[in-house]
């Protein structure tokens, strides 16, 4: 199939002719911008990108990208993406989803696509609220959330998305933040490079219904103390003075000060291939005593469903001749003259 020259692609090639209709100030703009910036750099022909979404604010995403796109129904994007990828494994398949779409109505598809490790990238915009239906709590909202549907506070405990993804055998699990553009770009690129299902949780501010949900993590004054930026092989050090680090105390994290008792060598180093460490990292999301990890929490190399299916079909083609007439006749046919 003929392809357009990928060398000449620019960000502008990925901007569609549709007006972007997210609320002014929405965190979604930052994500759109990063994706439009990334795509022309990946060396993939423009026509091979396919973006699929479900329902929700995040799911308007495909309309704003000048690629093939499918705005499907609530929660089902991973299923639709699975079919499209299996049908045409040459496509670079991206799913844009939200915390309600992926964790609630689409929870089943979310865990099963991770389990199968179908090669696609899932960007989950997590604003911890239902935006498009105007402000009900979501499955990632903190307990006690006061919303229109929970005037006395929500009663359900939230999902911790990376932990759910780990439990579902995800092979690439990362987190980034809408306001951290320089962090997001490289994470999205790594997600793309990963063969298998890549899951990126993007903390995203809904300035209408849940404004400031992540302000501790994004405001200049606090973020150095609240973010733990994970770098492969590097010690888990954070703080404005870069003087705090994580060590293991039994099987839990503990924050220690660097100085007289501890130095950088004592601090736990990040290893994205260590599943036990990833479990611990995913666990600390809601713990106010500990910083929130961003970066690649976990990555694992594993055969993808789509590759294995292609291999099975090749194997079958080599073993058995595709002879329709023979198949029709079966083993017990007879002829009437």
């Amino acid at each position: 199939m003929a392809t357009e020259n990928t060398q000449t692609l620019t960000r502008q090639d990925f901007v569609s002719d549709q007006d972007v209709r997210w609320c002014p100030g929405c965190g979604d703009y930052a994500i759109l911008s990063q994706v439009q910036k990334l795509f022309p750099t990946l060396g993939i022909p423009k026509e091979n990108f396919l973006i699929i979404s479900g329902i929700g604010c995040s799911s308007r995403f495909p309309y704003y990208m000048d690629t093939y796109g499918f705005h499907s129904i609530h929660g089902r994007a991973p299923a639709l993406a699975s079919g499209a990828k299996i049908a045409n494994p040459d496509l670079s398949v991206w799913v844009a989803t939200g915390d309600g779409d992926a964790m609630s109505i689409g929870g089943n598809h979310f865990i099963h696509v991770l389990r199968r490790n179908i090669d696609m990238n899932i960007l989950m915009f997590n604003n911890r609220i239902y935006g498009l239906t105007k402000g009900q709590y979501s499955p990632t909202s903190e307990v006690g959330k006061i919303t229109k549907s929970t005037p006395m506070g929500s009663l359900d405990y939230p999902f911790n998305p990376p932990q759910l993804a780990l439990g579902a055998s995800g092979t690439f699990i990362a987190r980034t933040i809408d306001r951290e553009q320089k962090h997001m770009g490289p994470i999205l690129e790594e997600a793309h490079k990963h063969k298998g299902t890549s899951f990126v949780e993007i903390y995203q501010n809904c300035n209408i219904f849940n404004d400031g949900a992540f302000s501790d993590l994004t405001e200049k004054e606090t973020k150095a103390e609240t973010q733990l930026v994970l770098e492969q092989g590097e010690p888990m050090i954070f703080g404005a003075e870069k003087n705090k680090g994580l060590i293991l105390d039994g099987s839990n994290f503990k924050v220690v000060k660097l100085g007289s008792h501890y130095n950088a060598d004592d601090i736990l180093k990040h290893d994205k291939e260590d599943k036990n460490l990833a479990m611990l990292l995913s666990e600390i999301t809601y713990n106010p005593e500990l910083p929130v990890p961003i970066g690649i929490l976990y990555q694992e190399t594993k055969s993808t469903y789509d590759d294995m299916m292609t291999n099975q079909i090749e194997e079958a083609k080599q073993k058995n001749e595709a002879d329709l007439e023979k198949l029709f006749s079966g083993t017990n046919s007879w002829v009437v003259d």
Partner: peptide
Amino acid sequence: KSFGVKTFQAEDEIAGVVSAIGAAFAG
């Protein structure tokens, strides 16, 4: 499979049909 048939045993009925819609979009 020797005819190139792809069968996907989905996680539920909904994923079955929705994945088929994705495959239809992809040709």
